[in-house]
């Protein structure tokens, strides 16, 4: 009898996909891992909406209304939600815009910036509205675990995932390796 595979969903909100790339850096161990897990919504699958999953990995902070909706969908469908990387946990690089007023940012980019032709603030309903600031994900939904680093090293993904796959509690942050490089 084959064991039920653990379902994992992943997404990048206001992030750079660097955390996803670091996850792929576990290299050949992906093969073994793949025997135990299957991916739901993820850049690796092309599934558009997060279905019922065991673990959700969220990279990136929350910068717009769409991020909020995706994040809430993950929270509603994932038994365990993990904030992955500096942006998810603190807002990270995108949160550098928090030093400026949103109005200033949009006007600089779409109205007054160098080389702007036909200046206008885009207002198409297809475009998600920006929040006034970039927020860490735990300020929007409850988060179960935090995996720090920019990006978290490949080993750190295994350090948190393997115990979870085995039904154990992952180690505390202090015991993990974490990098900002």
């Amino acid at each position: 009898m084959t064991e039920r595979k653990i379902k994992i969903a992943t997404t990048s909100l206001a992030g750079c996909f660097g955390c996803h790339m670091s996850f792929l850096d576990i290299d050949e161990q992906l093969v073994q891992l793949n025997e135990r897990i299957e991916f739901n919504r993820s850049p690796l699958t092309d599934i558009k909406h997060c279905g019922p999953s065991d673990i959700g990995l969220i990279e990136g902070g929350v910068c717009n209304a769409d991020n909020v909706r995706v994040l809430r969908e993950f929270r509603a469908n994932c038994k365990i939600l993990i904030a992955v990387g500096a942006c998810a946990i603190t807002g990270g690089v995108p949160a550098m815009r928090n030093y400026f007023d949103l109005r200033e940012c949009l006007e600089e980019v779409y109205l007054h910036g160098a080389g702007v032709t036909n200046p206008q603030i885009p207002g198409d309903v297809e475009l998600p509205l920006l929040l006034d600031k970039v927020y860490p994900i735990q300020e929007v939904v409850p988060v179960d675990y935090f995996l720090p680093g920019c990006p978290p090293p490949a080993d750190a993904f295994l350090a948190i995932l393997l115990p979870l796959l085995n039904g154990a509690v992952p180690p505390q942050m202090a015991d993990c390796r974490f990098y900002y490089d």
């Binding site: 209304a65 909020v68 007023d101 949009l106 207002g123 509205l129 006034d132 939904v141 409850p142």
Partner: peptide
């Protein structure tokens, strides 16, 4: 069980004003 740290809908207000949008997707 949980409440967000800030008022999500209010955080969209500036963007709503600047884009003059008030459709369903412009609210949280």
């Amino acid at each position: 069980a949980f409440t967000p740290a800030f008022d999500l809908d209010a955080a969209l207000e500036t963007a709503r004003q600047m884009t003059q949008r008030d459709d369903a997707d412009a609210h949280l």
